[in-house]
C-alpha cells in the first residue's frame, strides 16, 4: 500500500510541472496586454508603459519569467494580483470556501440521488422507471448550464418566490467570515435565521451545479451494476438463497462502485469547471468567477497561481480517490 501511495505521489510532480507550464504558456499565448487593457481607450505614455512593464517583471525574457515563477511557486509565493495588489493566495483562501461549499453540496446531492437512481434503474431494467431515469439524466447532461440556471431562477425565485435569486446570504445578515463557509459561520455565530438564509441561498445553485454529475453518476451506476449483476458470483449468491437486497446492496454494489468512484473523482474537476458558470449566474463569490475575471484582465499572477491552486486540489482529490479505490479493490493496490 505504501509503495502504491509513493508511486502515486511521485506522479504528481510531473503533473504539477505540466500545469505550471500550461497555465504560464496559455495565458501568454492569448493576445492581450494587461497594461493596455488597464488603460482601455485612454492613451498610455510610452515611458509609463515601460515603467509598469518593468515593475510587473514583464520586460524580462520569457524563460527568466518562467524560472522565476517556478522558483516563487516552490517557495509558496503566489505573487500579488496586478489589479487589486492583494496576494493571490489570500484571495484564493477567501474565495475558495464558497466554491467548496457549493461543490460539496452539489456533489452530495448528486451522489444521494444519482446512486440510488442508477441502482434501481439497473435492477428494474427496461421498466418505465429505468427509461424515465435514463431519459432525465440524458436531458440533465445535455442541458446548457447557463440557460438551466436562469430558468431555475425565473421559476423558483421570480415566479414562485421560494428561493432567493442570488448571493450567499441575504444582505441584512452580516456575519464575519471565520471558516468562509456560510453555513458553518452562521452556525458558529449562533444566528439561526442567518443559517436558514445561507441554506436557502445554497439550494438553487447546488441543484443547478449537481445536474451534470448527477446524470453521469446515475448512468455510470446503472451500466456498472448491469455488468456486475450478470457475473457468476451474483448468480451463486442468488442460488444460495440470499435476500435480493443483500445480493444487490452488498455483493453487487461493492464491485459496481469501483468505476463509479473513478467517475466521482473525475467529476470534481468537472465541478470546478461547472462552478465557473454557476457562480457567474448566481453571483456566488467563488474562485470560478474570480479566475474568469482575471483571464479577462490578463492578470497573470492570479491566473497562474489560481489555476495551479485549483489544479492542486483536483490532483489531491484524485489521489484520494485512487487510495479509496485501492481500499475497495485489493486487486489494484496489489498491482494485479
Amino acid at each position: 500500500m505504501l509503495r502504491f501511495l509513493l508511486t502515486r505521489l511521485a506522479l504528481i510532480i510531473p503533473t504539477f510541472l505540466g500545469v505550471t507550464l500550461m497555465t504560464f504558456a496559455m495565458i501568454r499565448l492569448v493576445p492581450g496586454d494587461p497594461i493596455l487593457l488597464m488603460y482601455g481607450e485612454r492613451t498610455v505614455d510610452e515611458s509609463v508603459y515601460q515603467k509598469l512593464k518593468a515593475e510587473m517583471g514583464l520586460d524580462r525574457p520569457i524563460l527568466v519569467q518562467y524560472a522565476s515563477y517556478l522558483n516563487d511557486m516552490a517557495h509558496g509565493n503566489f505573487g500579488k494580483s496586478i489589479t487589486t495588489r492583494t496576494p493571490v493566495l489570500s484571495e484564493f483562501v477567501t474565495l475558495f470556501p464558497a466554491t467548496v461549499e457549493l461543490s460539496l453540496t452539489a456533489m452530495t446531492l448528486a451522489i444521494l440521488i444519482g446512486l440510488p437512481a442508477g441502482i434501481v434503474a439497473a435492477v428494474r431494467r427496461n421498466t418505465a422507471f429505468d427509461h424515465t431515469v435514463m431519459g432525465a439524466s440524458l436531458t440533465g447532461y445535455s442541458m446548457p448550464i447557463f440557460w438551466w440556471g436562469l430558468l431555475m431562477i425565473l421559476t423558483f425565485s421570480v415566479w414562485l418566490g421560494w428561493t432567493p435569486v442570488s448571493g450567499r446570504m441575504a444582505v441584512k445578515y452580516f456575519i464575519e467570515p471565520v471558516t468562509g463557509f456560510s453555513l458553518i459561520d452562521s452556525y458558529l455565530a449562533g444566528d439561526w435565521s442567518a443559517f436558514k438564509s445561507a441554506l436557502h441561498h445554497l439550494i438553487l445553485p447546488a441543484c443547478v451545479l449537481s445536474t451534470v454529475p448527477l446524470a453521469v453518476i446515475a448512468r455510470m451506476t446503472r451500466s456498472s451494476m448491469l455488468e456486475v449483476l450478470n457475473e457468476d458470483y451474483i448468480r451463486t449468491a442468488r442460488a444460495k438463497g440470499l435476500p435480493p437486497w443483500r445480493v444487490v446492496g452488498l455483493h453487487a454494489l461493492r464491485n459496481a462502485l469501483i468505476p463509479v468512484i473513478t467517475v466521482i473523482g473525475l467529476q470534481v474537476g468537472a465541478l470546478l469547471g461547472g462552478a465557473i458558470l454557476t457562480e457567474t449566474i448566481f453571483s456566488w463569490p467563488g474562485v470560478g468567477n474570480w479566475l474568469i475575471e482575471s483571464i479577462r484582465r490578463r492578470d497573470y499572477p492570479v491566473v497562474q497561481g489560481g489555476i495551479l491552486l485549483a489544479a492542486s486540489i483536483v490532483m489531491i482529490v484524485n489521489l484520494m480517490v485512487d487510495v479509496l479505490y485501492g481500499l475497495i479493490n485489493p486487486r489494484i493496490r496489489k498491482g494485479h
Binding site: 436562469l150 425565485s157 421570480v158 432567493p164 435569486v165 442570488s166 444582505v171 453571483s283 468567477n289
Partner: peptide, 20 residues
C-alpha cells in the same frame, strides 16, 4: 448602503423584481 455584486444583467433584474 449595500452593494450586492451581481454580474449577470438578467439576474440583476430578477433581484430587483424579487425586491432583493
Amino acid at each position: 448602503l449595500v452593494y450586492s455584486i451581481t454580474k449577470d444583467a438578467s439576474v440583476r433584474w430578477a433581484k430587483v423584481k424579487a425586491g432583493e
